[in-house]
Amino acid sequence: MANSASKCEDCLYYEYDPEYGFYVCDMELDEDETAQFIHGSFSDCPYYRPGDEYTIVHKQI
């Protein structure tokens, strides 16, 4: 994943879901987008929003 938009780990919407026990995209993805997300081929994501550690932690509070 060379494109920064495909790096979900750096995205503001990438959150841990305790119900599922893993990280998920917090955006409402359609069926095709969900399949791309699961297979790790979700490049050039239209919802990507960079979030530094402070922004992500602040959102969780």
Rank of each mutant, 00 (worst) to 15 (best):
M1G: 15
M1C: 14
A2I: 11
A2E: 15
A2N: 15
N3E: 14
N3G: 12
N3S: 15
S4M: 10
S4I: 13
S4E: 12
S6T: 08
S6L: 01
S6R: 04
K7P: 00
K7F: 12
K7G: 04
C8W: 03
C8M: 08
C8S: 08
E9I: 10
E9P: 00
E9S: 10
D10S: 12
D10K: 07
D10L: 14
C11E: 01
C11P: 02
C11L: 09
L12K: 04
L12V: 06
Y13C: 02
Y13T: 02
Y13R: 06
Y14I: 06
Y14H: 12
Y14G: 07
Y14L: 05
Y14V: 06
E15A: 07
E15S: 07
E15L: 11
E15M: 07
Y16T: 04
Y16N: 04
D17P: 02
P18M: 12
P18L: 08
P18H: 13
P18I: 10
E19P: 00
E19A: 09
E19N: 08
E19V: 05
E19C: 00
Y20K: 15
Y20H: 06
G21W: 04
G21N: 08
F22H: 13
F22C: 09
F22M: 06
F22D: 11
Y23G: 13
Y23N: 15
Y23D: 15
Y23F: 15
V24S: 05
V24T: 12
C25F: 03
C25M: 10
C25Y: 02
C25R: 02
C25G: 11
D26L: 08
D26Y: 06
M27E: 13
M27P: 02
E28T: 10
L29H: 03
L29P: 05
D30T: 05
D30A: 05
D30R: 01
D30H: 03
D30C: 10
E31F: 11
E31D: 09
D32L: 09
D32F: 13
T34E: 12
T34G: 08
T34R: 08
A35K: 15
A35N: 14
A35M: 13
Q36R: 12
Q36K: 15
Q36L: 13
F37E: 08
F37H: 09
H39C: 03
H39V: 03
G40D: 04
G40E: 04
G40M: 06
F42C: 06
S43W: 11
S43Y: 10
D44H: 12
D44Q: 10
D44R: 07
C45A: 14
C45L: 09
P46V: 13
Y47W: 12
Y47M: 03
Y47P: 00
Y47A: 04
Y48A: 07
R49I: 07
R49W: 10
R49Y: 11
P50T: 04
G51Q: 06
G51T: 09
G51M: 11
D52E: 06
D52I: 05
D52S: 09
E53Y: 00
E53L: 03
Y54P: 00
Y54H: 03
Y54I: 05
Y54L: 06
Y54N: 03
Y54W: 03
T55P: 00
I56T: 07
I56N: 01
I56A: 02
I56V: 14
V57D: 14
H58P: 00
K59V: 00
K59E: 08
I61C: 10
I61T: 11
